[in-house]
Write a protein that binds this DNA or RNA. Structure first.
Lengths: 164, 164
DNA sequence: GCGAGATATTTTAGGCCTAAAGCATCTGGA
DNA sequence: TCCAGATGCTTTAGGCCTAAAATATCTCGC
């Protein structure tokens, strides 16, 4: 019965014969488990992670952001941002205004309603994350953070070496 | 210009005031960067990660798996597996047979064509992963692997504590 | 044997995401 | 001035994923 709590790694046993792949599968497994947990909790509150991410990017940017900046900040495609922002605007959480400087561009700002919604979700969100990492002491957390920093540098190098 | 290689973390600066959230955002950023890279490379070969995962689960299971087992192995919903398997069957990479023991169930097996396709993709896949972690020495990789093990245990504990 | 609930799967409706094509507008050089 | 290419955004077509409802079948206790 204590197996019930173990987090499973995709294709455990198959493929995992190379250490780099084993590392990647474990990384993926941890991330997906957390992400699905967070997604589920958001959806219980009628929200989604993607919409939350948009609001987070807009938070404390009183002056707003245009679509391209949002797309870059969120690491998602332009078309995706269009879709998310239009729905957020329909729901009154953001407002889209034409850019005075460039008629192709629009400026997206959070509304008061958006700010209120974001505030509530953000508080819940970091409580959830806190709970998921609560089993690690400060040293273990810092160690993981640094190790991920190593990975991050390695990824940047690896991507640079193998062209676009 | 050297900023161009830096991997960005979502809502850098906002939200990241709690160490647990900073850790989570870095984890997410590393995972997403690798995953998108892998996705892109698969799609250049006319494949997708989701389909690859199904084939990987079926690999060296000569006797096949039923849909539920696949769903559990891949950590995705039943409906999702139905859809993926039906398309793989259409493309001749897997075969769906009725279970002799249970008329509700079906047994999915990889075909020779599927096995061939999987072999090629699997080889490429671990080369890509190798390249992405090549910037870390063996010690750093082992350290990250262990640190992710800590996280994994913490997640399991955290989920257990906060009910389903 | 039978029926209630469990189980295996599929269907449906809908959200997220991308690449590529298309449209509008801007900008810099001839 | 004018226009070619760059840029900002939207649309389209399509893949991934989920939760919940619907089907079909199984199983177990009476």
């Amino acid at each position: 019965m204590k197996e019930a709590l173990a987090i499973r790694e995709k294709h455990d046993g198959a493929l995992a014969d190379r250490s780099s792949v084993r590392l990647w599968l474990r990384l993926l497994s941890c991330t997906m488990t957390i992400e699905k947990d967070v997604q589920r909790r958001f959806s219980e509150r009628g929200a989604t992670l993607a919409r939350f991410d948009v609001l987070a990017a807009l938070d404390r940017r009183e002056q707003g952001m245009n679509m391209g900046a949002l797309s870059r900040a969120l690491l998602v495609s332009n078309g995706n941002v269009t879709q998310l922002v239009q729905k957020l605007a329909r729901d009154g959480l953001v407002r889209i205004a034409p850019s005075p400087a460039d008629r192709r561009a629009s400026i997206v700002r959070m509304t008061a309603k958006g700010r209120a919604e974001f505030g509530g979700l953000a508080a819940a969100h970091h409580d959830w994350i806190d709970a998921l990492v609560a089993g690690m002491d400060a040293g273990a957390r810092e160690n993981l953070y640094q190790a991920l920093g190593d990975l991050k540098r390695s990824i940047a190098k690896g991507q640079a070496n193998s062209g676009s």
